[in-house]
């Protein structure tokens, strides 16, 4: 196709992502032409067994694998992802869902995204079998901007010392490994932290709130925290108050792309008059900072 670049570009705008990808397979030169397609309107998503390019009109171009006779995804998906990143020039992935089956696949894909310095909007990590050292390396290096969901029943060992140092706006953790240390780090980067299935104790809660009231947590960014833990069931006091802890205040806050609200909250104040509302009902604790 010996046509001027500007004409080639206009032709590319008339092709959909599947056709662009097929063209890129023709030759190296054809790949450079395929790259002219403007992909601003298309978002990239990585799922357990497909790589999707999503357009603005709810159209999805799924580079998927046959579920009935799947190939070895650990082998075929990473090179396919590299090709797609090359052809379409993506440096951003909107959603990356690990699936629950293969840590190896999650790790291979993550390494590609780290090497290419790709930004990830949302990471859903749900793998049930984890290599702790490798996961720590990945989480320390992946650039997650909006949401990070970690929901796995994997029992992390006490040696798993990952602390979130690269912060998305919303951090959701459903695992007992996430403790007070991790929370104290996460509140200095995230806007909202949600922890479920946790091993938090009333003692942890008192320690955290005590530090906040004493204004010992410097540079706090989080305005909303919610924690669910079986240890909260019972009548152990929090800041001297016996659960359930409720009040008459209704607060809501928005920040970035997240928002949170508490109805029937109880007001607490730090030593210098900073305000927050808290609520503890059954196994769920919430706090919204003013």
């Amino acid at each position: 196709m010996r046509l001027p670049r500007i004409v080639q570009k206009e032709i590319m705008e008339n092709l959909d992502p599947f056709e662009i990808f097929d063209l890129s397979e023709c030759s190296k030169r054809a790949r450079s032409v395929a790259r002219l397609k403007n992909m601003k309107e298309f978002r990239l998503e990585i799922h357990e067994n497909s790589i999707d390019i999503c357009g603005t009109n709810l159209e999805t171009f799924a580079f998927a694998f046959d579920e009935a006779m799947p190939p070895n995804l650990d082998e075929v998906m990473p090179p396919l992802l590299e090709k797609i990143l090359d052809v379409f020039g993506y440096s951003q992935v909107r959603d990356f869902s690990s699936g629950d089956k293969s840590f190896k696949l999650f790790a291979s894909i993550s390494e590609i995204l780290i090497q290419r310095k790709c930004k990830i909007g949302t990471l859903y990590f749900t793998v049930e079998n984890v290599e702790e050292k490798q996961l720590k390396h990945i989480l320390d290096n992946l650039n997650i901007s909006d949401f990070f969901f970690l929901d796995t029943n994997f029992q992390f060992s006490p040696n798993f010392d990952y602390k979130p140092i690269r912060f998305p706006e919303l951090l959701c953790i459903a695992n007992s490994w996430f403790g007070l240390d991790q929370l104290l780090t996460a509140v200095k980067g995230c806007l909202e932290v949600e922890i479920t299935n946790s091993s938090f104790t009333i003692r942890d809660l008192n320690e955290f709130l005590g530090k906040w009231m004493a204004e010992e947590i410097q540079n706090m960014t989080a305005f909303s925290i919610s924690i669910s833990s079986d240890d909260f069931l019972g009548d152990s006091p929090v800041l001297g108050m016996t659960p359930p802890i409720m009040g008459r205040l209704a607060w809501q806050r928005r920040g970035g792309i997240v928002g949170a609200c508490i109805r029937y909250g109880h007001l607490i104040k730090s030593i210098n008059g900073q305000e927050a509302v808290i609520q503890l009902i059954r196994d769920r604790f919430s706090v919204l900072f003013g």
Binding site: I11, L15, D22, C26, R29
Partner: peptide, 26 residues
């Protein structure tokens, strides 16, 4: 014209695209 050129390869395989658009191999 560009739309028409693009239409030529709608639904075609890479090999067919190569043939239709006379794309040389590497």
């Amino acid at each position: 014209c560009c739309k028409q050129v693009a239409m030529m390869v709608k639904g075609k395989s890479p090999e067919e695209i190569r043939e239709i658009w006379m794309i040389p191999t590497d």
